[in-house]
Computed example of a mutant assay.
Amino acid sequence: MEKKKESRDWLNLLIRPGFYVEDGRITQVNAAAQGLLLEPGMDIEPLITSGLESYQGFQTGCLYVQLTLSGTAFHGCVTKDEGANVFVLDADTGDTALQALSLAARELRTPLAAAMHGAQALRAENNPQAAVLNRGLYQLLRLVGNMSDAGRSLGNARMETTDLTAFFDELFEKTAVLAEAAGIRQEYQGLSRPLLCLADRELLERAVLNLLSNAIKFTPKGGTVRVSLAAGGRSLRLSIWDSGPGISEDIRGSLFSRYLRQPTIEDSRFGLGLGMVLVRSAAAAHGGAVLIDQPEGWGTRVTMTMALRRENTGVLRSPAMRIDYAGERDHALTELSNCLPVSLYQKEI
């Protein structure tokens, strides 16, 4: 027992709240977790407000769930350590840095719109640099969109009844063509029948495209990205699995942390982490979780789950009104702009 305690001393070095869970109960907490009134002996499941079903079946990898502690929402990264579940928390609200990013994004939208308008003139002149400029502007548009939503509250999710089978079929039919242009084969296994439930279509689409963008970036030319949907129980599971070299465990545990750019990560494919924060938030908004694992020793598989929620009313509702974050430009070309070839942006602006 003393040896196990010594092996867990790293927990006390964490600034963020962290704790161990065994047999469904908290067994060890650090100082930051104590500040949230967590203590050994507490049941963990009542604290998990999103992703409980995924947590109950958690075996390996890194699982991201949402918890509510002392009235505050937290995102929790769960990993395994000698059979115990280890939670490291990240506050979901009250981040002034995120609010500053959102305000900065507002200021950037006006000059970005002006630059895109100017790029139209280059395209009209058949300037050979137009495609390079266009893709760069789409990349900026994607970044500004992620900055805008970095501080978005989960309570702002705009749910509407959606046929998820048709929604994903249409989305992945389009991305298969784009992935092929990047030299990547996309394999897709969808659902066999309609599945109606509540979803924030825009948030869900952006989250999925972010995951697909990462999968394409980490898959070598000629490789395959596998996408599959599976409905079971009260949840839907979407898995995107690349055929790259995989991501090491020490990096996996912090992929969803804001502004992540560890000094040890030299690979330019790793960004600030804002896109992955969006994925994590989208899963929580839909009552689900995100799991990152490497089931066969190669590649990286990311599985996002969402609860199958349906309205208990017969009242028909119109689709939620919203302003398109991409200014009516193609969402797939925007979100995949970091991994698609320049040639696809010759005519798009």
Rank of each mutant, 00 (worst) to 15 (best):
K3H: 10
K4Y: 05
K4R: 08
K5M: 10
E6C: 10
R8Y: 14
E22T: 03
G24E: 04
I26W: 05
G35V: 00
T49D: 15
G51T: 01
L52A: 14
G61D: 00
S70E: 15
C77N: 06
D81M: 10
D81K: 08
G83W: 02
A84F: 06
F87I: 01
A91L: 04
G94H: 11
A100V: 04
L101Q: 07
L103G: 00
A104H: 04
P111I: 00
A115E: 08
Q120R: 13
Q120P: 02
Q120M: 11
L122T: 10
R123C: 12
N127D: 15
P128H: 10
P128R: 02
A130K: 09
V132Y: 14
L133T: 13
S148K: 04
A157Y: 07
A166E: 11
E173F: 13
T175I: 02
E180Q: 14
A182W: 03
I184V: 14
R185C: 15
Q186S: 15
R201V: 10
L211F: 08
L211I: 11
A215W: 07
P220M: 07
G223Q: 06
T224S: 10
V227M: 13
S239H: 00
I240Y: 03
P245D: 11
G246W: 00
Y259A: 12
I265H: 06
E266D: 09
D267V: 07
L278F: 03
A283I: 04
A283F: 01
G288S: 05
L291I: 11
I292N: 09
I292W: 08
Q294D: 06
V302R: 13
V315F: 07
P319M: 02
M321C: 01
I323C: 02
R329S: 05
R329V: 03
D330S: 07
A332R: 03
L336P: 12
N338G: 07
Y345E: 14
Q346Y: 12
K347T: 15
